[in-house]
């Protein structure tokens, strides 16, 4: 046996765990998303609804100055729960969120599967839950910029432009609803994105799937609704489910005569399915030759 120059030294130190072990995963996801030129464009576009609604908040406080432009529909520019519900459940915003997911979220897990990166992650001091959390946080980063940040900004702008706290006095629950609904819709999209991303090693296929599931769930609802005239078919549509829940969160009557809790349960079921699939899919690379 060869005698080593230096005997084996047992490691005596204490391993210091990272406070947020998921953060490097999130940072990498954000960095890789911004490397894509088309993503930057879409992300900029997705901020437009927030800019428009912010302008709306300003105009609502200066209606007299803008009467010549409005000529009647000034009621639309009233900042109230309907205003918030309109923003959070608007079809363009939801569509742009899906586009963000297609561009920034599709590769989150599928690229790791494609490039066999899981074995590199899991041979390091990183728990599977930290990995999933890191991936989810990437989705949260992008979507909260489109939901929570504008939502709270609208409230803030309303208070600044109005110069009083009357708005908060009238609707004290609005900030809570903004936070709760933003987190809910972001959590759902995070689970939805990671679920689809874990199903394939091909990012293009995942991107198409993310888009098609969202669109076709809506198309199927439209087809069945037009045939059977049963509002319960709205549960098939992801977009309608989010809109139904959104209406409830902002204390508005839902668009379809279906209890909002059903839509909530559908979204929760998709999240549970995602958690189940992720648990099975995310594991050390198994070698079968």
């Amino acid at each position: 046996m060869v005698i080593s120059e230096q005997g084996y030294v047992h490691w005596q130190g204490t391993f210091v765990e990272r406070r947020f072990p998921w953060w490097p995963i999130t940072r990498l996801g954000i960095r890789l998303a911004f490397k894509r030129k088309f993503f930057k464009f879409v992300f900029s576009i997705s901020l437009l609804p927030a800019v428009m609604f912010s302008t709306g908040v300003y105009i609502s406080e200066r209606l007299d100055d803008f009467q010549f432009m409005l000529k009647g529909p000034d009621r639309l520019l009233e900042v109230n729960p309907v205003f918030f519900k309109s923003y959070f459940t608007s079809e363009p915003l939801l569509f742009l969120m899906v586009m963000i997911m297609v561009l920034a979220g599709a590769g989150l897990i599928c690229d790791d599967l494609k490039y066999n990166s899981l074995q590199l992650y899991f041979s390091r001091p990183l728990r599977k839950r930290d990995y999933v959390l890191g991936k989810m946080a990437t989705v949260f980063f992008f979507l909260l910029i489109l939901t929570l940040v504008p939502g709270l900004l609208f409230v803030l702008l309303k208070l600044i432009f109005a110069g009083s706290f009357k708005f908060l006095a009238n609707y004290p629950w609005i900030p809570v609803s903004v936070i709760a609904f933003s987190l809910l819709v972001t959590l759902f999209f995070a689970f939805y994105t990671l679920l689809v991303s874990s199903l394939s090693k091909n990012r293009r296929y995942v991107s198409i799937l993310l888009f098609l599931i969202y669109i076709f769930s809506n198309v199927f609802f439209g087809i069945f609704y037009s045939i059977f005239h049963n509002p319960y078919f709205c549960l098939l549509s992801i977009q309608c489910d989010i809109q139904q829940v959104g209406a409830a969160f902002f204390r508005q009557s839902p668009q379809y005569d279906v209890p909002w809790i059903y839509s909530f349960l559908v979204l929760a079921a998709i999240c549970c399915l995602s958690a189940f699939v992720l648990k099975r899919k995310i594991r050390g690379v198994e070698v079968v030759k």
Partner: peptide
């Protein structure tokens, strides 16, 4: 795992 270095066979 902080004390282990792993070089996999496949590209990653």
């Amino acid at each position: 795992f902080g004390r282990i270095g792993f070089c996999p066979e496949q590209d990653a």
